[in-house]
Design a protein around this nucleic acid. Sequence first.
DNA 1: GTGGAACTTAACGGTTTCTTAAACCCGGGC
DNA 2: GCCCGGGTTTAAGAAACCGTTAAGTTCCAC
Lengths: 224, 224
Amino acid sequence: MRVLLVEDDELLADGLVRALRHDGYAVDHVTRGDQVQPAVEAGRFDAVLLDLGLPGMDGLEALRTLRQRRDPVPVIVISARDRLDDRVRGLDAGADDYLIKPFSVEELRARLRARLRRGPEPARPLLEVGELVIDPDAMTVTRAGEPVRLPRRELALLVELARGPGRVFTRAHLEQALYGWSDEVESNALEVHIHHLRRKLGGDSIKTVRGVGYMLVAPAAGEG
Amino acid sequence: MRVLLVEDDELLADGLVRALRHDGYAVDHVTRGDQVQPAVEAGRFDAVLLDLGLPGMDGLEALRTLRQRRDPVPVIVISARDRLDDRVRGLDAGADDYLIKPFSVEELRARLRARLRRGPEPARPLLEVGELVIDPDAMTVTRAGEPVRLPRRELALLVELARGPGRVFTRAHLEQALYGWSDEVESNALEVHIHHLRRKLGGDSIKTVRGVGYMLVAPAAGEG
DNA sequence: GTGGAACTTAACGGTTTCTTAAACCCGGGC
DNA sequence: GCCCGGGTTTAAGAAACCGTTAAGTTCCAC
């Protein structure tokens, strides 16, 4: 298992490298934010441990660059920035975990194990349907470059459909995705939401499969 | 996105359910540890939020059971047990994240988002008979790559026949597959559906066995 | 609180699908 | 040739499905 440690504090870095190597990981170590992208591209790491306050380029910036290029490598942020919105920002920038310094090496090990157990989760590509761009990860939609603000139900519906573009989702599945088992829908709420979505996204983006359900039209697939 | 919340503190659970529903998640809620396994099996959740101190069965136990059965659902532990070795044990039991009570809802949201970023849906099992490909889950059929639109009854009939290509299914069996035990059909509805299917799939795809029933055979290319 | 957005429910009409029924077909026995 | 029973085809009314509109209700931000 190959791990990239990005940390400019020599003392901490030394300790971590030593501890992780002791656990059997192959650890590479860089100290500057602008080294992250090249290192990851070259190195095929199974995980990255990323400090945030770095010379060259801020760690968060480096992380965003990585994710913009759809690199799926698991990233654990290790930072002294302990404010709530630091953590939220880090996770939303694409971190898989966020550990606050000072932390116990034991916990880092456990969280690293948890990440490595799963392996990289491939990032989904942006879904483009005509002038429509759906980012299922960020749960955002833009039309002709303009962000489209969607109400909760409609967004949830669209994101669910975007999980399998070109695939049919049954009404039962979609209703479960929106409502769970607790509330049962015994009206045509689903159809109404579909209707509203179509109005906002353009009529041919969501296709009806009669007697079955709905599907988001895939970019590549020919027919609408 | 479907989320299962496992939490016995009514007040906390209520708040979380409310907050998550507000974010567009379909939230189901159970309070006992021994309800986790059945719920997850029945519910196809995208993530589980799991308290540890639970009636019925300890959360950690429930988590281990889940993982022993190779269930891959992402699990975020939310617990007041804040000792280092609690966290390590939780993560090593198969948790993907471990959040200590009291926590900020904002952080839970961010960590949930991080867990729900995920790759494409796994491939589904397909039934293949000659050039015919049936996806029972999406309830779609393609013939030589071309989608064939089938109404529900015809589809159900075809799916049943496709379970044993080259095998004869009795009328009684097929009628039961279409209408269940309760409904008795006392007309030739079955024959009519067979007729329609043959028209769409090609005349020789469904063979009649006089006095017994029908069977599916690989249809010849180019017809239909 | 209050106003507006979002959500649900209900109703209607056009369309597809399902069932029923009746006519038709066809091989086998006489 | 004629009849018989199982199977096929056709047609038509009934039922279900889906899109749309609109009204009522809940939710939420101000």
